[in-house]
Structures are given as C-alpha cells and as structure tokens.
Amino acid sequence: MSVNTYDGRVQDLLQTMLLIRAYEERAAALQAESGVPGTCTSVGQEASAVGVVAALGADDLILTNHRSAGHLLARGADPGRLLAEVMGRRAGYCKGKSGSLHISAKELGVILTSTIVGGELALATGVGLSQKMLKRPGVVVCFFGDGAACEGRFHESLNLAAVWQLPILYVCENNQWQAFVHRRETMLGDSIASWATPYGIDSATVDGNDVEQVRALATEALDSIRASGRPFLLETRTYRLRGHFEPDDQAYVDPDELAAWRARDPLPRLQARLLESGQLDARALSAMESDAQRRIDAAVAFAIDSPYPAIDELVTDVYA
C-alpha cells in the first residue's frame, strides 16, 4: 500500500468517504455482533478527515489520535490491516500491539499516534522541528479534538510552534463532544480557531461536513505554511454521529441536536450535490457503494484470517 494522493476529482473524495463510513459501521457491527474490541468511530466526520488528507502531498506527515480510522483510510491504509490491528492480529499495522487506539503506519506517513488526549500535540512540535532542521519538504499535520484543545499541551504546542516557526497544520476536529461531556460545558464561546490568535498563529474555521470546503481551506492553509514556514490552525466544525466508544447508546445526547446534525451528514450532502450537478448518476453511486462494501467484506475476511501474534511478541519492541 502506498500513500494516496488526490488529483482533485470530487468523486475520489466521495469514494474515500464511502469507504470510511462502511469501515466504521462494520467495525461497530463487529463489536456488537462478534465481540470484536470496540472502537472510537468517526461516523459523521468523514468530510473533515478526507478534505484535509486530500490536500496533502506525499511528503507530508500526519499525527493523529484515538479517532484515527478516517485519517488512515484517507491516506491509503489497507482496511484489512486496520481491522486486523483492531482485532489484535499479527497482520495489523502495529503487529496487533496497538489495537484501535494508537495506530500508526510509518509507511503512510501516519506517525506517533497518541491516545493520551493532547499527546500528539506535544509530539508534533518535535516532528516539525525535525522537518525544519533536516530541511525536509513535508508539512506536519496534527489532528486533535475539541477536548484536546482544553489540555495545557495544546497551548504549549501552539506557543512553541509559533516562536520557533514550525511547519505544522493544526487541525482541530471540533465534533462537539469530549467523551461524555458536551463541549459547551468545557469552554466559554464556540470558537477554538480564535485561540490561535494570541499566539500569533493564523487560523480558519470551516464547515467540517463539507468535504470540498474542507479541502479548499486545508489547501490554502498548507500553501500558507509552505510559503511562510509558520504554523496554521484549521478548525473543522463537525459532529460525532455515533457514540464515543462502541458500544454507546448515546442516551445522554440531546435528540434534537443529533437530528439537526444528522440532517447535515456529510455523505448524503455530497451525494445530493453531485447527483444534482450531474457529476454523478445513481448507477455510478450505487457502484461506488458496493465497491466500498466489497472492500470491507474482503478486509473482514483478511483480518479474521490473520493469526494472533506469537506470545514471545509480548516482550519484543520494548527497547531498540
């Protein structure tokens, strides 16, 4: 598997979003029906992940967190190896030692994933420093949530990146939830992007459920980072349509709020737009949907067939 790069076709964005949705829903179903370990799904946030990743070049690096499947799949991860990792199998990206929560895939430039909320923000400055000092071309993209923005490390990271002028695109996926606490309870005001300003960092906010807008703003942000060498913060406003970690009955979620965001689900929105503008017809759409399902069927079969790691793997990879 190599890194996905996108040449601008909106159909490719849709295809990737369909793959992510199919993957996440299957992962949740496997948890419910077959006792496969639970995951933090990104259902509802596909446009945010795909829009940003589609703006990247092959040299760019990604740091992510516990809700990473969208970022990984958009970057070209093999859904079979991803599911194998979730199931703790040898063929997983991390030999089954990570499970779902800290999957990294160096071959795709998805590195140093941390499930300590805010952990990736602390590491991103170091990766940015390496890129700068070793004169490597790639920008560092750091995905994190609105909850992570409440950690001190967010503020330490932005300040240092600004002072040292590090090439980092901070992407706050503001999905309105921080596990079982609504974002409203944790901050005054609604904007995380505006928190960048006092650190001297430019920022933008985008409708995170509109993949084309996300990609356009991410492209602008990356251009500005490449031109100036300075960091940028992009806030994608989106919503976690499923629970925090499977299983989760979402009994604590206000049904009106959930319904309002369901009406803005990024997938039907994009499909409707493409059908209306004639960029897609119903047959092509259904072919894309079945293709995504076929890939996920194959992924499940691959993951289930993959053996567990040998028990002596328990103590390998501790020290270099």
């Binding site: 690096l61 740091l63 590195i111 140093l112 952990g119 923000l121 602390a122 590491l123 991103a124 400055t125 170091g126 990766v127 940015g128 420093l129 390496s130 890129q131 000092m133 070793l134 001190g152 490390r153 330490e156 990271s157 300040n159 240092l160 002072v163």
Partner: peptide
C-alpha cells in the same frame, strides 16, 4: 519556553523523526 511538557514532547517527536 518554561514548559517542561512541551520540551519533552518536542524531544520525543524529534527523536522519532531523525534528531
């Protein structure tokens, strides 16, 4: 800056990527 967490985190991220 006087911020031990980000000093250490920066070092960890840099160590993993060639420094």
């Amino acid at each position: 800056p006087l911020a031990e967490g980000i000093i250490a985190g920066t070092a960890v991220g840099a160590a993993a990527t060639g420094l």
